[in-house]
Nucleic acid binder design. Structure first.
Length: 689
RNA sequence: GGUGAGGUAGCUCAGCUGGUUAGAGCGUGGCACUCAUAAUGCCGAGGUCGAGGGUUCGAGUCCCUCCCUCACCA
């Protein structure tokens, strides 16, 4: 065992405008398993995280809901905290970037950067919404693509042709906030001079702080040249005001990683830890960040540079992971596969997901597919059928022979094989190759079952003098099980705790797997895990999304419309719910249903379920809508007919373009989808009420 | 479009610095067992390792070209 390490670990900050979902849980679980492993090995390991609370989206969402940003982030924080705790994420502190500690850390970092000449003021031109009286981030200006002319494109890039540009290049630009055309306005901004850090970043990267594939990605960015980073935003902005710069605020991405430090500062105050032990440039502690691969730029370039520029230490490691897909596809609200943490937890134990993720999680940045069938068979086979089965099949014999373990192992070599495997399993955990660790552990579980099968205690027990031998075999069996549970404790902390109680032992540490437990009177065996019903697992995605919690709705969406159980048409239809939650007449009125005439219909290249429709909504003009009705309708038969659409559904960008509404249809899906039709006399644009 | 990652048995994946008949789990077929949450054990079927070239005595493993998938683009 190596000397005791002192380690500070973080997960990326979840943004405070929505619920925690399966994708974030992957990261939380990855981090937590590593943290628990370090602690199990006897190291000092602190794990902090926080809500990421600042920025324009939060500000506008709070406005839309008629509450203060503080109220909004407060509600979300409580939800996040509960979700993570229920997922058995062993955070030492879960703070908020909207805290005194983070503000202090921001100011300190900023002033240090400024003092060392890393901050520069520049005047930039930016889109300004004169009606809403605010500057507009790129994503808050929409218009026609200057390159291909596609409608309704964001101000930074075109989803149709892929061109990138700035908001001022858009044709017919409109502010998303007020709907009025933006104007150009000058503003003084503060830039962090990232370009000065290239050589130091390269040296840091060469030291092995990131995965190799990530290093390749960073080299690409180096080759393009590092650009200085605009870290300021103009009022109104929900965030921290920059010192000596009234009306200027820190950009949310500046204070987000500093939120790690703010959260850690809170922990230091609470536990009497010395902050500088972990953050000073000559620190001998370790600093590890677990992140998604989408935010590499911030964590592998900006963040180490900011830390160094502000006179602090650099991260020991930045560990990126891939995304979670559901049954091979990107998580999607319209497909019903946007699984929130709460939704998962309402159905299944936290540890099942922890195990499943761990079993599939390697050290790389590949995406991880959450396959529902596999989830059930994997849990049932590995955890119940193999692992728990070992204890289950041995415990009864021990109970019948007096409830006490034998005082020697019949085959010490087999036990030694298990303890020896602890080294490779530990190395796999350390390298974040949890899949490798689990593979090894399950291979050992097979060995344990084989051992019991070969020695057949149920036959020996029939002999008059068989008691001692049976006890020996089952004592070894239980000890093999015990070693495996110790190895799995980072992944299955609750099951491990139950097993500790069963063996009547104090909480295990890693080294306990090296010595067998002998002559011990053990407790009565209780089932440690129960089987999953595959049908129940399927429900995780098949039923319609539950009513959105207060903080869960997308900024632009009208909640009643967004989660309507009738939302069958734009993608895989959801199974009809038995009864939907009652709504008021006002909520119904918020859904703008209109008669539409289908002007054109065509298949979508690369989508086997979708048809692209062009519809006429009378006074509302023409719209493009994607509908998941390809299996049910020949495009040609649709042209000219009338139907009903939701006209005020927030535009939804899909891989193939933007869908500007939803066609109403009934039916279970596939070929059994039936479009609604009005009686004769209805005309395009008429409101349905 | 640029870049990155990846394409190995029906499914999910291992295959380190190139070296005997390409591995595991799940699923599947057969047998055995009955201690165990219909759990477990044994035996078997199943792969021209995306395609085509090349280097080499020898290539999933190195090089080139192409095809496909996924992701990212501050």
């Amino acid at each position: 065992m190596t000397a005791k390490r002192r380690i500070l670990v973080t997960s990326a900050l979840p943004y405070a405008n929505g619920p925690i979902h399966l994708g974030y849980l992957l990261e939380a679980v990855q981090t937590d398993v590593w943290v628990r492993f370090q602690r199990l090995r006897g190291h000092e390991c602190h794990y902090v995280c926080a809500d990421d609370t600042h920025g324009t989206p939060i500000m506008l969402k709070a406005q839309a809901e008629g509450i203060s940003p503080e109220a909004l982030i407060g509600a979300v924080h409580a939800e996040h905290r509960r979700d993570l705790a229920d997922m058995l994420i062993s955070l030492d502190n879960f703070g908020s970037t909207h805290s005194d500690e983070t503000r202090a850390a921001c100011n300190r970092a900023y002033l240090a950067l400024r003092e060392r000449g890393h901050i520069e003021k520049r005047v930039i031109r930016q889109a300004y919404d004169a009606t809403a009286k605010m500057f507009l981030p790129d994503r808050y200006v929409k218009g026609n693509c200057p390159n291909c002319g596609a409608a309704d494109q964001y101000g930074d890039s075109c989803e149709v042709c892929g061109a990138t540009y700035s908001p001022s290049d858009l044709k017919n630009p409109l502010s998303v906030v007020s709907g009025t055309p933006p104007v150009e306005r000058d503003s003084e901004h503060y830039f962090f001079r990232l370009s000065g850090f290239e050589s130091r970043l390269k040296e840091w990267m060469a030291g092995g702080a990131v995965q190799r594939s990530v290093a390749h990605k960073l080299e690409e960015w180096f080759a393009q040249g590092l650009k200085d980073w605009d870290i300021s935003r103009d009022a109104p902005y929900f965030g921290f005001e920059i010192p000596d710069a009234p009306g200027k605020f820190f950009y949310v991405w500046f204070d987000a990683p500093i939120g790690y430090l703010g959260s850690f500062a809170q922990l230091c105050a609470e536990r009497k830890l010395a902050f500088d032990d972990f953050l000073s440039p000559d620190s001998r502690t370790e600093l590890h960040h677990f992140i998604g691969k989408d935010i590499l730029y911030f964590h592998a370039l900006f963040w180490p540079a900011v830390l160094e520029g502000a006179g602090m230490r650099r991260p020991t490691g930045v560990h990126a992971h891939g995304f979670v897909t559901i049954n091979g596809q990107k998580m999607s609200k319209s497909r019903g596969t946007f699984i929130t943490a709460r939704r998962y937890l309402e159905h299944f134990p936290a540890e099942y997901l922890r195990y499943y993720f761990a079993a599939k999680l390697g050290p790389g940045i590949d995406d991880l597919d959450f396959n529902l069938d596999e989830f059930a068979t994997r849990l049932n086979s590995d955890v119940v059928g193999k692992l728990v089965n070992i204890a289950s099949r041995c415990a009864g014999f021990i109970a019948r022979t007096g409830g006490t373990l034998a005082d020697a192992l019949p085959e010490p070599a087999l036990f030694a094989e298990f303890s020896a495997a602890g080294d490779t399993i530990g190395a796999a955990y350390e390298q974040r190759d949890y899949a490798g660790a689990i593979r090894e552990i399950m291979a050992l579980a097979d060995r344990a079952n084989q051992y019991i099968d070969q020695h057949k205690p149920w036959l020996i027990a029939k002999r008059e003098d068989g008691a001692a031998e049976v006890r020996g075999v089952c004592t070894l069996g239980l000890n093999l099980f015990r070693s495996l549970m110790i190895f799995l404790k980072p992944v299955l902390p609750d099951m491990a705790a139950k097993a500790e109680r069963f063996f009547r032992e104090a909480p295990w540490n890693w080294q306990d797997a090296a010595r067998p437990l002998l002559s011990q009177t053990i407790g009565a065996y209780e089932p440690l895990a129960s089987r999953l019903d595959p049908a129940a697992v399927a429900q995780l995605v098949e039923s319609p999304a539950p009513p959105a919690p207060p903080a869960a709705a997308k900024p632009a969406a009208k909640p009643a419309a967004a989660s309507s159980p009738a939302a069958t048409a734009t993608a895989t239809p959801a199974t009809a719910a038995a009864a939907a939650t009652p709504i008021s007449i006002d909520q119904f009125a918020s859904v703008d249903l209109r008669i539409a005439r289908i002007l054109a219909a065509e298949r979508v290249e690369g989508a086997d379920k979708l048809l692209k429709l062009r519809v006429d909504l009378g006074e509302l003009g023409e719209r493009q809508i994607f509908a998941g009705i390809r299996a049910a309708y020949e495009p040609a038969t649709l042209v000219g007919r009338l139907t009903v659409v939701v006209a005020n559904l927030a535009p939804r960008k899909m891989r193939f373009g933007v869908s500007e509404g939803m066609v109403l249809a009934a039916g279970p899906g596939g070929a059994d989808v039936f479009l609604l039709s009005p009686d004769a006399g209805a005309a395009p644009g008429m409101r349905v009420k």
